[in-house]
């Protein structure tokens, strides 16, 4: 039933509803606009209330678990062979499960999940039709883009942390932990090594933030979220293939994937920040360019979905 009585009125209830509404003309100007963090909170809650988000994080968590279990089972049988970096250290120290998990996930699994989240940002809202309601609320186009990108970056951090935390946990359970021997030969304590792990997670999240900016831009180009997701994922893979072709080595330093696996510098004593700095500069450039592109596209876009 629709009630025709007093409506959602913010003014005092003693006033007749009619006069309260008629006085409204100046109200929005008088009422101070909030800073708008509520929308960011709402964005995060929508993102992390989706089953899809948890399914992706669960899949990422499965990577170090799988590695640890396989290594545990194989360790009983014989000596270590090839495999990804850090794999051989796992049996000596469980914390290396987290690093191996990252190395294995960086080329495909992590970019895939970021592509899903970043490709969905604007195109997903357009696909649901909710974009028109957000914009007429009015959310403001720049504010909406910022909130969307911010939430995508939060997901990048969550994705990297998921692998690091599950890796460290399962590694500790299966292999135990202790002082870590770094690439430089030095040995650091467990506490210090956990800090290093977090730094690596930040490094990976930063690498993914560049991809998220590209995904955000692609997402403003379409109303079909799956299209934006697939395009972003394909771009991440193709860029890595290009990065593996020696004939194109003049181009390599400009690819956003160039420093993706260079976090080993953070495992030296003292820490070498060179790779971190170079990666930050590269990703910063990509973030600036693609966020600007996304804004220039989105600010003038006709929302017809």
């Amino acid at each position: 039933m629709l009630h025709s009585g007093a409506g959602p009125n913010t003014t005092a209830g003693s006033e007749p509803a009619g006069s309260a509404r008629l006085e409204q003309p100046s109200a929005p100007e008088n009422r101070r606009a909030s800073a708008g963090w509520a929308l960011f909170g709402s964005e995060l809650s929508v993102l992390f209330r989706r089953l899809r988000t948890w399914a992706m994080l669960l899949a990422l968590a499965a990577v170090p678990v799988l590695i640890a279990v396989v290594v545990r089972l194989a360790a009983d049988e014989g000596g270590p062979g090839g495999g990804p970096p850090f794999l051989n250290q796992i049996t000596q120290n469980g914390l290396f499960v987290a690093l191996t998990g990252l190395v294995v996930s960086i080329p495909l699994f992590l970019p895939l999940t970021i592509s899903v989240v970043a490709g969905d940002t604007i195109a997903g809202e357009a696909g649901h039709g909710t974009l028109r309601y957000l914009l007429t609320a009015p959310a403001g186009r720049l504010r909406l883009l910022a909130v969307k990108y911010g939430a995508a970056v939060v997901f990048c951090i969550a994705a990297a942390l998921t692998i690091v935390v599950t890796g460290a946990l399962i590694g500790t359970i299966l292999f135990g932990t202790g002082p870590v021997t770094l690439l430089s030969g030095d040995t650091i304590g467990v506490g210090d090594s956990l800090v290093r792990l977090l730094l690596v997670a930040v490094y990976v999240a930063l690498s993914l933030a560049g991809l998220a900016a590209i995904g955000l831009f692609i997402s403003t180009l379409t109303e079909v979220p799956v299209g934006a997701m697939a395009t972003t994922a394909v771009l991440a893979v193709v860029t890595q293939i290009v990065g593996a072709l020696p004939q194109l080595d003049w181009l390599h330093p400009w690819l956003f994937t160039y420093h993706w696996l260079d976090f080993a510098d953070l495992l030296r004593q003292p820490i070498s920040w060179d790779a971190f700095g170079a990666n930050a500069l590269l990703q910063g450039g990509y973030i600036a360019v693609f966020c600007a592109l996304a804004y220039s596209r989105f600010s003038t876009k006709d929302v017809l979905s």
Binding site: P8, T10, R31, S34, G41, S42, P138, L144
Partner: peptide, 18 residues
């Protein structure tokens, strides 16, 4: 709630009631 947070003029204090 989601759409209400998009409007910066919509007071959070009264959100639930509105």
């Amino acid at each position: 709630r989601r759409l209400d947070t998009a409007d910066r003029h919509a007071p959070a204090a009264t959100r639930r009631r509105r």
